[in-house]
Simulated scan of single mutants.
Amino acid sequence: MIVAAGAACLPAHAAFAADAPECKAVRLSDLGWTDIALTNTTAEIILGALGYEPSQTLLALNITFDSMRNGDIDVFLGNWRPVQDLDYKPYFDDGSVIPVATNLTGAKYTLAVPKYVFDGGLKSFDDLQKFADKLDHKIYGIEPGTNKPLLDMVEAKAHGLEGDWEVVESSEAAMLTQVQRAAEAKEWIVFLGWQPHPMNVNMEIAYLADGDAEFGPDFGGATVRTLVRKGYPELCPNVTAFFSNLVFDIDYENTGMNMIMTDGLEAKDAAIKMMQAHPEKLDAWLKDVVTLDGKPGLAAVKAELGIQ
């Protein structure tokens, strides 16, 4: 691009003012997870204040990757590593998706149980078969396309699994309802758990050991990355700069998610409250980012949010 070639001669913010007209619509994938509801909506509010027209589309994880490969989705804020990097390796290998930021560190993602189940002896993936009858041979997962490590584990009869084990696929909300119902009755249940999430604050849970083959070491210790579709950084450098800056932390996400899940706030209201409480985040998120028409981005967003 001619603009890019001359970027070195321009002020930093001007270099990002060259988004193509089609960049005005920014299409984000929503998996129905509360963490992505918070992060997507945060991005949506900021992009709207910058003059863009962002939208979220509810998609399964596998459809998200297909949609990015097909050019139907621009941005995905939920690339949990390492598990997705393994399951969706071909999309990274052929350049269909491009990582632009690690938006969260210190996450975890593996099987979990209520504390009373852990205290009863189910402490490891290798203990599952021992308590198969108490668990009704069921492992509770979330949306289809997200549970592949568990489905593969059951099919391979890993960890000594025997009999007709079932991975129950539903949604984050449905799974948590099932867990809460079981916990109230002190019934045994094993489910897919992760951090950040209010489940770590509002329930007594413990994570199972020895799931390294399925979810990686350190109890599925994970980072979360932001992906954009192939060609997007060149076409939309200003939006890409914003998403490269958009980095959260565990406390921020736990607090914002708790507003949604426990306090009953809409994602938009929670996202606005969090940004108003942490204006310093905006300074970092909007560094060298401008509005769609080339004006200073930080000032526009703070004005929209009523932040001095």
Rank of each mutant, 00 (worst) to 15 (best):
K186H: 13
L58S: 11
K108P: 00
E143P: 01
A14Q: 13
H197A: 10
D164G: 12
I63S: 14
Y109G: 02
G141P: 04
E166L: 09
A101S: 15
D119P: 05
S55N: 06
T105N: 13
A18D: 11
D127V: 03
K130P: 03
E169T: 14
T110Q: 01
V247L: 02
A107Y: 01
A284I: 08
K134N: 15
M259S: 12
D133W: 00
K138E: 14
T223A: 06
F76Q: 03
V190M: 08
L77S: 05
A183W: 06
K268I: 11
M259L: 15
E234M: 00
T39D: 03
A222E: 09
G121P: 07
V224R: 06
P99K: 09
N40P: 11
S67A: 15
I98W: 04
F131R: 07
D288K: 09
L59F: 08
G6A: 06
D249H: 01
D293V: 07
L176T: 07
L10M: 12
A158C: 04
F191I: 09
A270W: 06
W194A: 12
G51T: 04
A5K: 13
A267Y: 11
K24L: 06
W194T: 09
P90V: 03
D85Y: 06
C9T: 14
V97I: 14
L282R: 12
M203W: 00
S171A: 13
G294N: 06
D119V: 05
G32I: 09
K287C: 03
S124G: 02
E155N: 11
F242I: 07
I272D: 08
P144N: 08
A112N: 05
T255E: 11
Y52E: 11
G120C: 02
A267G: 04
N254A: 05
G294C: 02
L135K: 10
F118R: 02
A213H: 08
F65E: 07
M274K: 01
T223Y: 03
